[in-house]
């Protein structure tokens, strides 16, 4: 019932994008997200979208998969587009009725922003699709390691994230099971007032807490059995190496961003 969520899922592969240094990939994804907000004209936006399509091809993942990542945020896209269509009233009016005024400028803005959001989501899902969650937290840990100087325990944070990612599917499954078990005892989860519904959650939340604590305790024991003693003296199986390809990628993204800025000066803005 609760399964079928694909955001944050990893699809193993061996493409250039899969093999990229995760740290660089993470930084460049953020850079790309920022770059998507630079263009004020169609040409610039086309460059940004073109770059995205190029990376999707590089990842060798089916384009359908990337499109699927858009699905959950479709309501947000529709909502913002609607807002833009109704609230931007500059430009040539196309439709006028009562309080609804639709203009060319409204449509342009709506389309422009929708494309921006889609690129942004598709770009970041490409990161999680091509990088395993553990590698990602690992990359984060390494990127944030300078913060150790200010006594922030980066390793523990990353470990917590890894464990959370590992146990989310397990806990979703468990919630499903507990809900079914309580329903089998006649629990009514679907009707009643708000208060009644909140109260109806108690038989689900308490067993879930109890089992999470039991799991936490057992996992801690298992980690001790495997000689875990924090980040000190710990090595990693997967090394992160910057390779020529990573440097090329950085250059390409920087060039693209510069190009987008130049385009903003050369071409008239459309929004």
């Amino acid at each position: 019932m609760l399964s079928g969520i694909t955001i944050g899922q990893f699809f193993p592969g061996n493409s250039l994008l899969h093999r990229m240094d995760a740290r660089i990939k993470l930084v460049l994804t953020f850079a790309y997200i920022a770059a998507v907000f630079i263009p004020r004209n169609w040409a610039g936006l086309a460059v940004a979208v073109g770059f995205l399509i190029f990376t999707i091809l590089l990842s060798r993942l089916p384009a359908k998969l990337v499109l699927k990542s858009i699905k959950p945020i479709l309501p947000i896209i529709i909502f913002t587009s609607a807002l833009n269509i109704f609230y931007v009233t500059d430009g040539t009016p196309l439709f006028d009725w009562a309080f609804i005024h639709i203009t060319t400028q409204g449509l342009t803005t709506a389309a422009f922003i929708a494309i921006r959001i889609i690129s942004l989501i598709a770009g970041s899902s490409l990161l999680t699709y091509t990088t395993s969650p553990t590698t990602l937290t690992d990359a984060l840990e390494r990127l944030l390691s300078p913060l150790k100087a200010v006594r922030l325990n980066v390793h523990e944070l990353a470990m917590m994230m890894t464990i959370a990612l590992r146990f989310i599917p397990t806990l979703i499954e468990e919630t499903d099971k507990i809900m079914s078990a309580q329903k089998a005892r006649g629990a009514d989860l679907e009707s009643g007032s708000l208060m009644q519904r909140i109260r109806a959650l108690i038989p689900i939340l308490i067993p879930l807490f109890v089992s999470s604590f039991r799991r936490a305790y057992e996992l801690a024991t298992a980690m001790e059995c495997r000689c875990y003693r924090g980040g000190e003296g710990r090595t990693r199986m997967k090394q992160m190496h910057m390779r020529a390809f990573d440097i090329v990628c950085i250059a390409v993204v920087v060039l693209m961003a510069a190009g987008l800025i130049v385009l903003n000066f050369v071409l008239p803005p459309v929004i």
Partner: peptide, 11 residues
């Protein structure tokens, strides 16, 4: 219906 490991549903 008594589920598998039913003790996990006690609350």
């Amino acid at each position: 219906l008594v589920f598998q490991y039913p003790e996990h549903q006690l609350f």
